[in-house]
Design a protein around this nucleic acid. Structure first.
Length: 426
RNA sequence: GGAAGAGUGGCAGAGCUGGUUGAAUGCACCGGUCUUGAAAACCGGCGUGCGUUAACGCGUACCGGGGGUUCGAAUCCCUCCUCUUCCGCCA
């Protein structure tokens, strides 16, 4: 969420950013609504504070008058106070209304995009930041999509998942399950070697938590909701892990805060359909290793680059052809200022699969989280937060299976063999 | 699930028979004196949000969350949450 003060002081910047996000002039009027609502909020508060000051000073006097036995004068003041109180009640209501309305408006404003975010309407306009260097032609013998390979080698059973839960809940079996576990262990080992602290968080979170990272209220329909206890199943480890720093004042020397965690992720994916959702391409439950950083504002873009190159390195180690996209204004998420997507090429499907999305949220999340630090002048400032996946494993799995198939079976990438303890699925 | 107790500033810990208590005291932290330096000692400072101001400052709100009683609440009442201990149940 943006701060009103920021919008007030950087109006041009906000407009520029919203235009990159393809906002129409009509929609831009939201900015003025925000500012005028904030004005009336301030007015109410100034008036209210004055009344409250009157009540406070009279109350003090009343106490003193009673002590010195002047009950009559005290009673006089009491009636004055009750009159003031009526007015103050009105103003309080007014102010609270303004605050609620302001909040509602602010929730509609997306993050400011970074100057390097290209204009564009959607996916097709994303900038290829780092193209893929490998040959992407379909090689001889790479014919089967992962759902066919799954059946052939009996390592993944979507139908079984559909029976016991519903469609989009994969069941991994045998070497498939083991490969999945190998990926988790390998990635966690690599990432923790880079100084990330490993976290195993709760998989269900409360409302406050979901709100702080922005899943509520905007994405309520995307989360599974356990209504009996009012808990939400996490759509990503980003939610519980980032919330570890909700309402925390970070010490300068604690930067950068680097955390990682493996969790299953649960997404309702309401409204998805078609070829996109086949096999592991889009599922309701998938495993993911997430990386999160909370940094000093001056360092966050440097950090973003480091995160992207670390994640790229992991794809290289897994011997997967990939490219990096810089998301355009039409595709960058509501909360992000700058996002790089890493896509892996599935040779059998002949299509790109997004396996990681690395973003800098600047202060957009930390504002809601109230995650701050004291700068060198002793001033409270919001920290920057970033996160990325390393990786969404369902799709990495899909690509490994497809790209490494041959008549002999599916070859396991070298770095994973110590974890799988087999080198081929056949 | 049942019973009892507790939740106060970075931490520890008073206040809780309602009225200079935004909150004692100690520790930690920052600045200074002293010292060759450090430690100790001494002096001073040390919460956050919002409003207002050119600024110093002033006002206001906050003692787990929400609501209530009262002229006035950290202090009384209601409710929710969390923690501790005891009992029950259980992987």
């Amino acid at each position: 969420m943006l701060r009103t003060q920021f919008i007030r002081e950087n109006r041009e910047e906000v407009v520029r950013s919203l235009k990159i996000r393809n906002w129409t002039d009509d929609q831009l009027s939201l900015i003025d609504q925000v500012l005028s609502t904030d004005d009336s909020r301030k007015q109410s508060q100034t008036a209210l504070d004055e009344l409250l000051a009157g009540i406070n000073s009279r109350s003090k006097q009343i106490g003193e008058l009673y002590k010195s036995g002047k009950a009559e004068e005290a009673n006089q003041l009491k009636t004055e106070v009750s009159e003031i109180k009526e007015k103050s009640q009105q103003l309080t209501d007014q102010m609270n209304q303004a605050i609620a309305h302001l909040e509602e408006l602010l929730l509609q404003l997306p993050n400011i995009v970074h100057p390097t975010v290209p204009a564009g309407k959607g996916e097709e306009d994303n900038e290829v930041y780092k193209p893929c260097e490998s040959n992407l032609d379909k090689p001889e013998g790479v014919d089967l999509a992962h759902w066919d390979l799954a059946e052939k080698y009996d390592i993944l059973d979507m139908a079984a998942g559909a029976k016991i839960a519903g469609s989009g809940f994969p069941v991994f079996k045998g070497k498939g399950a083991r490969l999945q576990r190998a990926l988790i262990s390998y990635l966690l080992d690599q990432v923790t070697d880079q100084g990330y602290l490993e976290i195993i968080p709760p998989l269900l979170v409360n409302e406050d938590t979901a709100r702080a990272t922005g899943q509520l209220p905007d994405k309520e329909g995307q989360m599974y909701h356990a209504t009996a206890d009012n808990l939400y199943l996490i759509p990503t480890a980003e939610v519980p892990i980032t919330n570890l720093y909700r309402d925390v004042i970070v010490k300068d020397e604690d930067f950068p805060i680097k955390m990682t965690g493996y969790t299953p992720c649960f997404r309702r994916e309401a409204g998805s359909y078609g070829a996109d959702v086949k096999g592991l391409n889009r599922v309701h439950q998938f495993d993911k290793v997430e990386i999160v950083q909370i940094t000093h504002p001056d360092k966050s873009y440097d950090t973003l680059n480091k995160m992207v190159s670390m994640v790229s390195g992991l794809l290289e180690n897994l011997e997967l052809p990939y490219r990096i996209l810089r998301l355009c204004g039409g595709d960058v998420s509501f909360t992000s200022a700058l996002t790089f997507d890493l896509e892996v090429f599935s040779l059998a499907q002949q299509r790109w699969l997004e396996v990681s999305s690395v973003s800098n949220f600047e202060t957009f999340q930390t504002n809601r989280l109230k995650c701050r630090f004291k700068d060198e002048n002793g001033k409270m400032r919001l920290a920057h937060s970033l996160n990325g996946s390393a990786f969404g494993l369902a799709r990495v799995m899909a690509a490994i299976l497809e790209n490494n198939q041959s008549s002999d079976g599916i070859r396991i990438p070298k770095v994973l063999i110590p974890y799988t303890r087999f080198d081929i699925i056949n």
